[in-house]
Design a protein around this nucleic acid. Structure first.
Length: 456
DNA sequence: GCATGATCATGC
DNA sequence: GCATGATCATGC
């Protein structure tokens, strides 16, 4: 058995796997014999590097401090590449992790540097036919490491606060704590609360992995950064730095801001452009390195003079044929709110009818609210499955539906979101009342009054 | 007045 | 062509 003790040798060996399928590498028929079928990492460890599989707290290549990981990516409709999943790392032992500092943590001990085997995932292929296309020895860039340190500290703080059961992947930016285990009943004890917490593992978020893939594997151009000086991140969080940069503009009207940045009112996208200017960016905030890696979605909210928000908040449409086959924990809705952080950009109408930039708030959906939203998701599936979408036809020809409405749930509801009524998705079950086999695209909306409550 | 259905506008 | 943010229209 060869022994790989330095990074160069390890990477050179890894390169030999590029262009091979898992079937070609698998010497011990792990794939075909159907046991441990999921674990492609084990095949690489055992058949390719020739070492015994272990679950040490140290990295796989202990001496070189390199952890081996196999991870899939996909090609999108628009030909770009995306990581298919988050990169799941070691399980968090709530009863131990809080005792450490970042550089003595279990995360750092095991994942200080990563040897990544990227393979192209293809739904039409079995695992043995999927191709390893690229390998990468990855070390965290300095500016990323500062954010990862903050992420780790936040997770540690939640354990210290007896809040391990409230941890969510959307708490943090690059390094997450994702749920791990067969199901929700994989619970663990925590040191500062009697409440059991879901078993979680450290992970690099899917959005972070996508950026790694694009930048280091496919050599895409680096995206613009909000924080240009790493040192700023050593003393403050990304969120606080953004708020600090925006604070001088709080209370200014849209007109004043346009004036300051010498812009013409070109309607619609003004607020997004203004936000960019206030942060000193050339492009949109949603396309910055930090926002893409952390999966932060900016949302503009306009508060009326009356203090209410007129419109509810929309999200991507769902496909009727797909949603009915989802489980809650793997559903697109759960994934969205479990992993996404939102940046609410608040504007308020003054008594002079002018729009004033008021504040910025980073928000993620609290765990119990997400559980409440589950009822909306369940009801939606039920309605689709029963072919029970249309409740009755209104006098003007519009359809009234049985989808959960705003009054049915405090968090969210289901409503159309389409070009027009003829912009549809196919139905898995024919609608009983109308005999329709396609129905207008719908999506989940967050209730306007719920959103308002989140601001204060 | 507002919940709900429907659609517009923009940009990729 | 369509996703997405934004907003309109109207029946109850």
């Amino acid at each position: 058995m060869e022994y790989y003790s330095n990074k160069e040798d390890i990477l050179n060996k890894a390169k030999e796997a590029e262009g091979k399928t898992f079937g070609e590498i698998d010497l011990y028929n792990r794939l075909t014999e159907n046991k441990n079928k999921g674990n492609l990492g084990q095949i690489i460890e055992e058949s390719f590097f020739g070492y015994q599989i272990n679950s040490n707290p140290e990295a796989d290549f202990k001496e070189a401090k390199v952890e081996l990981k196999v991870t899939p990516y996909k090609i999108n409709k628009n030909k770009s590449y995306s990581a298919k999943e988050r990169l799941v790392l070691n399980i968090i032992d709530y009863n131990q992790e809080y005792k450490y500092e970042f550089f003595t943590s279990s995360f750092w001990k095991k994942n200080e540097s990563l040897l990544l085997f990227f393979y192209l995932h293809d739904y039409d292929k079995s695992k043995e036919d999927m191709l390893i296309t690229n390998t990468l020895l990855f070390e965290y860039p300095e500016e990323d490491l500062e954010i990862i340190k903050q992420d780790w500290s936040l997770i540690k703080q939640k354990i210290l606060d007896g809040q391990a059961h409230e941890i969510s992947e959307s708490d943090t930016l690059f390094l997450g704590a994702c749920s791990k285990g067969a199901n929700k009943s994989s619970l663990r004890s925590q040191p500062f609360s009697s409440e059991l917490a879901m078993q979680r593992a450290f992970c690099l978020k899917q959005s972070y992995m996508t950026q790694i893939l694009r930048k280091y594997v496919f050599g895409d151009q680096t995206d613009e950064k909000i924080i240009k000086d790493v040192n700023e991140l050593k003393i403050n969080s990304l969120e606080n730095l953004i708020i600090t940069k925006l604070k001088p503009y709080f209370g200014k009207s849209q007109e004043e801001l346009l004036d300051i940045f010498m812009l013409d009112t070109k309607a619609k996208q003004v607020n997004e452009v203004l936000l960019s200017r206030m942060l000193g960016l050339e492009g949109k905030i949603s396309t910055t390195d930090e926002f893409k890696k952390a999966n932060i979605i900016p949302k503009t909210i306009r508060i009326e003079k009356s203090g209410r928000i007129k419109e509810s908040m929309s999200f991507p449409t769902f496909k009727y044929t797909e949603i009915i086959n989802e489980t809650w924990e793997e559903s697109q809705l759960y994934e969205l709110f479990e992993t996404t952080k939102f940046m609410f950009v608040l504007f308020r109408f003054g008594h002079d009818n002018k729009l004033y930039f008021e504040n910025v708030k980073f928000w993620r959906m609290p765990t119990q609210d997400l559980e409440c939203l589950k009822e909306v998701w369940e009801r939606t599936i039920q309605v689709i499955q029963n072919g029970d979408i249309v409740k009755r036809v209104l006098s003007n020809g519009n359809f009234m539906t049985n989808f959960p409405g705003k009054t049915d749930n405090p968090i969210g509801h289901v409503r159309p979101h389409a070009q027009n009524r003829l912009d549809t998705y196919p139905l898995p079950v024919m609608d009983k009342l109308t005999s329709l086999c396609h129905y207008t695209k719908h999506c989940f909306w967050l209730n306007n009054d719920y959103v308002l409550k989140q601001l204060y």
